[in-house]
Design a protein around this nucleic acid. Structure first.
Lengths: 131, 131
DNA sequence: ATTATAATTGATATCCGTTATCATTTTATT
DNA sequence: AATAAAATGATAACGGATATCAATTATAAT
């Protein structure tokens, strides 16, 4: 993979924005923060996918219809609040030994997984009480 | 929800086809099995979404770009083979007490979740050996 | 440095899954 | 039988993502 200024910006911006943005969202942020750089939307999509294939970025497929990206590639899960629509990282290991368990019980070899939880986050729960 | 012939066909066909088809796939099957019924694609989408909202069908959001539907609404997970692209039900409880665990550690209230595993299924693993 | 080759880019057309629209038909209610 | 509500089919429209392609940039070789 050759160097490119645009890819550098994309990685930096994704790293700084831990909100698991979509490609389009990231594109908007980049345009705002780098008004001079004439980056195109296709470049953002292209690079995010290339980086995901290379394992440098994680593509979360389980969120609505549009894919979100996460610079954090180590094993963790995601929680999406149905009210505020924010996406949170979940570090609790709710599914320990998942790969081993599946292999032993089914003979299937798990290489990747998405665990996305939906619900209401703490803040929004508290807000409801105050209404 | 009023009765409709089309909805009956949709539910029946989904139940008979436990392969977690997309709306389009289901539409194709229905057209093949009911050549006389002039069912439209929009009706299939509409009904599947309505049934999902009513909890009579499960919408799996974590599979590629197109949504798949499952007539089985009780808690279970899905495994998609990267080779044969088939989707399997996983009945092993790999994430026990998920709702409770998340609430205790984060204060978030989980109402729903998708756990989709990717990898290679048993059959395809065996096929590879024979190559 | 100069050149050659491959990678990357931006602009935009295109694709495709899904939803919106709306006139018509079907279902349930009285 | 009359009415209101729900559902339908056909299709236009939407939006996220990808494909295309000429132009630009990066890398390697000379």
């Amino acid at each position: 993979m050759n160097y490119s200024k645009q890819r550098e910006i994309i990685i930096d911006t994704l790293t700084k924005n831990a909100v698991h943005p979509t490609a389009e969202k990231l594109y908007e942020i980049i345009k705002k923060e780098h008004p001079d750089s004439k980056i195109g939307i296709a470049t953002v999509y292209r690079n995010l996918n290339k980086l995901a294939t290379a394992g440098k970025v994680k593509k979360i497929n389980a969120l609505e219809n549009s894919e979100h990206f996460d610079h954090n590639t180590h094993d963790h899960y995601h929680f999406m609040c149905n009210k505020c629509k924010q996406i949170f990282d979940i570090e609790v290991d709710i599914a320990p030994d998942i790969v081993k368990k599946i292999y032993e019980s089914t003979g299937f070899k798990v290489t990747d997984y998405d665990i996305v939880l939906n619900g209401i986050c703490k803040n929004c729960l508290n807000d409801n009480i105050n209404l």
